[in-house]
């Protein structure tokens, strides 16, 4: 440190970019230290998918038909159940209030937290999805589309879920309420995601579906953090 002056200033006002990066690193480190918890959404994803053959039929033809929808619905539910990780602990130990008081724009901090959440929760599911495709006899031509739709769609789920989490974080029993608020809003992502995989399995062009998912992602990135910030401010007021 050259002098106390500059070091004080850098401590007091790090740039927003630094703050965002630090926040992401913090969240990822925290997640890494609780590795066993991280496994839960992934295990849920796998277990839910493996329930369907038991519930419907082990026949390859039937499973092949429902595979895109089942994998997508399971991914959606796993995402929903993991939303608690996004703000809950930070709310309980008071860290969330510090974020609200920080000089950096809250929407960017929210975006950073959501990105970390997506890396921790959704990325393993995307990596694992082809295996589940095998279990359900997914059409061979649909694998890349499955990965692409999940990669584009799950961030939207996390971003929309953040709004619901922000609204319910202060409530003691927010769990069921959260799903009631959020699941209807997940519908477009589910539709475009599952139908794209379906269409790819039938050998059709899916660029339209993917474009729509991309558009939804851009819209969610721009608007959802604003709504989440507003929701957090209401919840913590």
């Amino acid at each position: 440190m050259p002098s106390t002056d500059t070091s004080l200033r850098t401590v007091a006002e790090p740039s927003t970019l630094v703050a965002v990066r630090a926040l992401m690193r913090r969240d990822l480190t925290l997640a890494y230290r609780h590795r066993s918890e991280l496994l839960n959404p992934l295990l849920f994803f796998v277990i839910v998918v493996s329930l369907f053959p038991l519930g419907i039929s082990p026949e390859a033809k039937t499973l092949q038909m429902v595979a895109p929808g089942v994998i997508w619905v399971a991914a959606l539910l796993a995402n929903l159940l993991s939303l608690d990780l996004l703000f809950r602990t930070d709310f309980e130990d008071g860290t969330l209030e510090r974020f609200l008081l920080s000089p950096h724009p809250l929407p960017l901090l929210v975006l950073a937290k959501t990105a970390a959440h997506w890396i921790v929760v959704a990325l393993p599911m995307i990596v694992f999805a082809p295996v589940l495709g095998q279990l359900l006899f997914l059409q061979p031509g649909a694998y890349w589309t499955l990965l692409a739709t999940l990669a584009l769609g799950t961030p939207v789920l996390s971003l929309i879920g953040g709004i619901g989490m922000g609204l319910t974080v202060g409530l003691r029993r927010g769990g069921v309420l959260l799903s009631l608020l959020i699941l209807p809003l997940y519908v477009p992502v589910l539709i475009f995601g599952a139908t794209a995989v379906d269409a790819a399995g039938a050998g059709l062009d899916v660029s339209g579906h993917l474009s729509f998912l991309g558009a939804l992602l851009l819209l969610a990135i721009t608007l959802a953090p604003l709504a989440t910030s507003a929701a957090l401010r209401v919840s913590l007021s």
Partner: peptide, 9 residues
């Protein structure tokens, strides 16, 4: 205020 945010979303 919470429901207002929800209705706007």
């Amino acid at each position: 205020r919470a429901t207002a945010i929800l209705s706007l979303v």
